[in-house]
Simulated assay, not measured.
Amino acid sequence: MAPQLRVYVPPHPIIRHWLTIAREKHTPVPLFRTAMSELGKWLTYEAIREFLPVQEVDIETPIGAASGQLIDASIPLALVPILRAGLAMLEGSQTLLPTANVFHLGLVRNEETLEASCYLNRLPERFEPQTRIFIVEPMMATGGSIIATLKLLTERGADPAFIRIINALCAPPALQLINQQFPSVQIYSACIDEVVNEQGWIVPGLGDAGDRSFGT
């Protein structure tokens, strides 16, 4: 049976809270940036679940012997923020994955064709086997940027089954493209909005996450 894309929208009150603050058009830049960072943290928390391998260990507590689990430090971790907006969520993701390498990827969308082009690529020449990769991409509307990212990652040896996307808002066109081309990837999103308008914006969405994060 062919794999089917799995999209998780955690029913978490903190995620809903910060998404609402991010959506409100009168939210000031510093608070918007805080909201994006918090979304990055809590969505990463959900994405880590049953994804990071652990090692069984024997330890001594102050009272006696016990067994436990530690995250397997031999498995490489990678965070791939898509610039610019991905930087706003990156800080939150890093609080939970402080040992992860960060590989920046800069993509810009042509506002007429809605096609994405890459202007900055700091990916490694080759990902190590078993690397767990977290793409930090706040908005997925038409799917152009995320598909371009996934192609760049897999060309450099990334296994789609070990890729998870940390996302604030997404829409059906992007999800359909990912399902067609990279169905093994898993997505952790705060919300799925149903509409993408002719300009490629998610409706109701939250506007331009990059502009609102950096006051530009």
Rank of each mutant, 00 (worst) to 15 (best):
E112K: 14
E155A: 15
I146Y: 05
E125L: 14
E125S: 14
A158N: 02
N121I: 10
Q181D: 08
N167D: 02
P129D: 03
Q181H: 14
F134V: 05
G144Y: 04
E125R: 13
Q186H: 07
Q176I: 05
R164K: 11
D159T: 03
E137I: 15
E112M: 12
S117E: 13
P138R: 11
K151P: 00
Q181E: 12
E111I: 10
R156H: 08
Q130I: 00
P172T: 12
V185G: 07
T154Q: 06
V185E: 03
I135L: 14
Q181T: 01
E115K: 13
C170I: 03
P160Q: 12
G143Y: 02
L123C: 12
E111A: 09
G157F: 04
T113C: 08
Q186R: 14
P138S: 04
E115N: 08
F182C: 01
L123Q: 03
E155W: 11
I166W: 02
A171R: 07
R132E: 10
E137Y: 05
N179Y: 00
F134M: 10
E112A: 13
E111R: 14
Q176T: 11
P173L: 15
S145Y: 04
P138K: 03
I163D: 04
Q181N: 01
F182K: 05
T113M: 13
Y119K: 02
G143Q: 02
P160Y: 10
S145L: 06
I133A: 09
F134Q: 00
E115M: 12
T142E: 11
T131E: 11
I178V: 15
P138V: 06
T149A: 15
Q186S: 09
I165L: 09
L123A: 11
E115Y: 13
R109W: 14
Q130R: 07
K151R: 15
Q176C: 02
N167R: 05
E112D: 13
T131D: 08
S145A: 14
A168L: 11
P183S: 10
L175P: 03
F162Y: 04
F127L: 09
K151T: 15
Q181V: 01
K151I: 12
I147R: 07
F182D: 01
D159Q: 01
R132P: 00
V136E: 01
I135H: 10
C170F: 06
E115I: 04
Y119Q: 03
L123F: 11
I165P: 00
P173S: 13
S145H: 06
I133H: 06
V185K: 01
F162V: 06
Q181G: 07
I133C: 08
F182W: 02
Q180E: 15
A171I: 08
G143T: 01
L152F: 14
R126D: 03
E155I: 04
T142M: 12
T154E: 07
A168D: 01
I166S: 09
I187V: 15
I147W: 06
Q186C: 11
A168Y: 07
N167I: 08
I146P: 01
G157S: 09
G143C: 06
L169V: 15
